[in-house]
Design a protein around this nucleic acid. Sequence first.
DNA 1: CTGAAAGCGCTAACAG
DNA 2: CTGTTAGCGCTTTCAG
Lengths: 327, 327
Amino acid sequence: MNDVAAAAGVALKTVSRVVNNEAGVNSATAERVLAAIERLGYRRNDSARMLRRGRTASIGLVIEDVADPFYSGLSRAVEDVARRRGHLVFTGSSGENATRERELVLAFCARRVDGLIIVPAGEDHDYLSPELDAGISAVFADRPAGSGRIVDTVLCDNAGGSRTGTEHLIRHGHRRIAFLGDQPAIFTAGQRLTGYREALLAAGLPYDEDLVTMGVPDQARLAGELARMLALPDPPTALLTGNGRTTVSTLRALPRRDLALVGFDDFELADLLDPAITVIAQDPVRLGTTAAELLFHRMSGNIDPYRQIELPTRLIPRGSGERPPPS
Amino acid sequence: MNDVAAAAGVALKTVSRVVNNEAGVNSATAERVLAAIERLGYRRNDSARMLRRGRTASIGLVIEDVADPFYSGLSRAVEDVARRRGHLVFTGSSGENATRERELVLAFCARRVDGLIIVPAGEDHDYLSPELDAGISAVFADRPAGSGRIVDTVLCDNAGGSRTGTEHLIRHGHRRIAFLGDQPAIFTAGQRLTGYREALLAAGLPYDEDLVTMGVPDQARLAGELARMLALPDPPTALLTGNGRTTVSTLRALPRRDLALVGFDDFELADLLDPAITVIAQDPVRLGTTAAELLFHRMSGNIDPYRQIELPTRLIPRGSGERPPPS
DNA sequence: CTGAAAGCGCTAACAG
DNA sequence: CTGTTAGCGCTTTCAG
């Protein structure tokens, strides 16, 4: 900038004015500055600019895994909102690891991002307090912050969706419905289990632990669990799977294709399978958009009380969930 | 930092030393500084640090769309390499829009990222020259830079994969093979068409324009094209689809399920469909890893001639590509 | 082992 | 309309 000023025979500040399109520069002077910029190949250093201005025009996004379609949809939505607001986004995957989540968040804070969207992996977010106090805005998405911390949060209606899915199966005549969920430590998994139990209770059906498995990571163990359930004296006639990955794994592990199935979370090609898979769809794009908009709202100085927004889920009947039990 | 220095009764520089774990600080002094840091809630400002040091420990990643599984796999791979090297990554989706690509790249450069991984949307990358001259490293991934610009590039073997897929169908007795590709302006689409033509030529089969459609964006038009082809006097008995999206759209649009089909690009659930879909698989993770490693290699000062790496594809027979033509 | 001074590249505040 | 000065928060250089 100094060089440009010297080359154009003006002061530093005038170059700054031209670069930032500030009003009140003689057009002849501006021309001269522009020419010098062109000649010297000058490009403004935004890092320096932001250090001086105190805001970085960037946000940090911590998700579980960009390669998961749910989170990549969310990412894209966040990115689109950020772009519209002239912000860049740092993205990081925590891999469901609390330490990694913390490292990422803190690294983003050290860069002084203006805001943070976090899908928490950990339970404890006390480490955020100093950053929040220092004026960083944060919105939690998909799962609430741990240890009862109060911040803006956008969730899906996990319990409600799960209840709807279970009710759907009950309505189609099923009385033995198995639930295959994620690790109970994960908020969404717990909520979905709750919804399942509520629906059973409301229908006067017993909650049978033999029909519930939580946190089955690999294909082989899932197949084992399914085999165990199907060998019960009173086996399940329907399955409710607790997330997209589990739904797909279940389809791969299932020895028979005649059980009714409702999957939590929609996935591409669910409609092309035979039978097509009935799902309780979440809306990752809306989740991302809502979280990002809430964040920018905060960043622009809004000081309303913290909000917790719950997004609805939607049952999409496609065939697998409408099969009657064997008569 | 000033405040901490004052509170601890030391000079600014000593605080800096402690914060950066530099050797040669009296442990008692260090204790005092650490205490002050704790008390005041001091957190180093990495933006300022990087302004001073001249490197930002961040890279920029421009892809077509994070929400596309191919690119989200690539993103994750890039992110993992970056993390291992202590770098953060700015991610942006160009949406196959050259202007947007340029804006993103330039925005990243203005932040003075240390390196760039670009899946180019545009044809012209002259705008990069000043940045490259200024010392930024860049690697192109999935597609080469436009206008013959010479930079490090990592590609898939598009032509070879397409050739293999076509040969596979020919080997299974097909002589009328349709090709459904992306817009020919996209490098990968052109290469894949070339591979298809080469295989036909090598087998002594005619190239029939009636059996080729490029750049069919929506479902309805794709269905129209398929109907047109199937109504030909000598209709195709097999299809080669030029990318993952097209494969899925074709499956949705296809009036019959008895044609042989090979899809370029693997996708989740391809194995669960009926028939399971034979594909030519690319390896987005390897693409990302390779590009990122090449980038960090450059960033660490390597000045070998620019490299162009071509990654192999792999034919995965699953059923749809092994069907014989109707006899 | 510790500190003072300079400066990374920019903008804010205030003169002229 | 243009310029001067100060300083964002840090590291580098050099001197104690």
